[in-house]
């Protein structure tokens, strides 16, 4: 069986290993598919739907769909970007995202996606939900107002036995991510920092470590999210 498959994204012919997820395959071909809940090296969830693409005419999440021979993928089309933009706007109105007061501003992936999709103001009414800041853990602050429930921290931050240190609690629209009450003490300084870095928004903050990067030097101040992939020089096999 041939391991290398040929497929196309927006008419551009691409090569990838069979079974690779579309997001990763696109990345290797220098094409950026926007993602939010997805994180390299972490099992994909397909939760946020930002990576929605049209595969053979059908809307699917690129982070959970494996590539196969002859796939025709639409990525950078107006129709699809409009869907993505709407999702970003929904996330903004669903929580309390006060960018000017956020420690993660400038390094926030949700904000960076809003910049990329030219969100000037959300089309949906703000819900201003009532949520708490949980600062009970000695090392981190869990700012529930900003959580987008992407589950990255739950999927990526594990103790030495492979158990998730973060966990969902409550149900429905009150669901929130918190530190597991029993495993919380396993959160080392390194894991706390990793959790803060892996959080796409400013919902996990290492205590006493806010605003350490000056404006103008932060990740998305000058370069749009995804530009590193798009500017990648691809060497075709």
């Amino acid at each position: 069986m041939n391991k290398i498959v040929k497929f196309s994204i927006d008419g551009v012919e691409c090569l990838a290993t069979r079974g690779q997820f579309v997001v990763d395959a696109a990345k290797e071909n220098g094409i950026y598919i926007p993602t939010l809940c997805n994180y390299p090296g972490v099992k994909p969830k397909g939760g946020c739907r930002i990576c929605t693409v049209k595969i053979n005419g059908k809307l699917m999440t690129a982070c959970t769909s494996p590539v196969s021979e002859g796939m025709q993928i639409e990525n950078n089309a107006n129709e699809i970007n409009e869907i993505r933009k709407a999702i970003v706007e929904l996330l903004f109105v669903e929580g309390n995202h006060f960018c000017p007061a956020c420690e993660k501003s400038g390094n926030c992936e949700l904000q960076a996606l809003a910049y990329r999709f030219h969100v000037m103001a959300p089309r949906f009414p703000f819900s201003f939900p009532i949520r708490k800041v949980d600062a009970s853990h000695p090392k981190i602050i869990k700012e529930q107002n900003r959580c987008v429930l992407c589950k990255r921290c739950i999927r990526a931050i594990k103790d030495y036995k492979g158990r998730s240190i973060f966990a969902y609690s409550k149900r429905g629209n009150r669901v929130e991510v918190g530190v597991d009450s029993k495993l919380g003490k396993e959160l080392t300084d390194e894991l706390a920092q990793k959790a803060m870095d892996i959080c796409p928004v400013g919902s996990i903050l290492v205590k006493e470590k806010g605003f350490y990067q000056p404006i103008g030097t932060r990740k998305y101040d000058k370069n749009p999210i995804g530009s590193d992939i798009e500017n990648l020089v691809v060497s075709k096999p």
């Binding site: 903004f92 006060f98 703000f126 201003f128 949520r131």
Partner: peptide, 18 residues
């Protein structure tokens, strides 16, 4: 024209909304 975050989304004053 809404100028600035406060006009667009309430901004810091809206932190009292909860």
């Amino acid at each position: 024209v809404s100028v600035g975050e406060c006009a667009i989304m309430g901004g810091l004053p809206a932190m009292r909304n909860g």
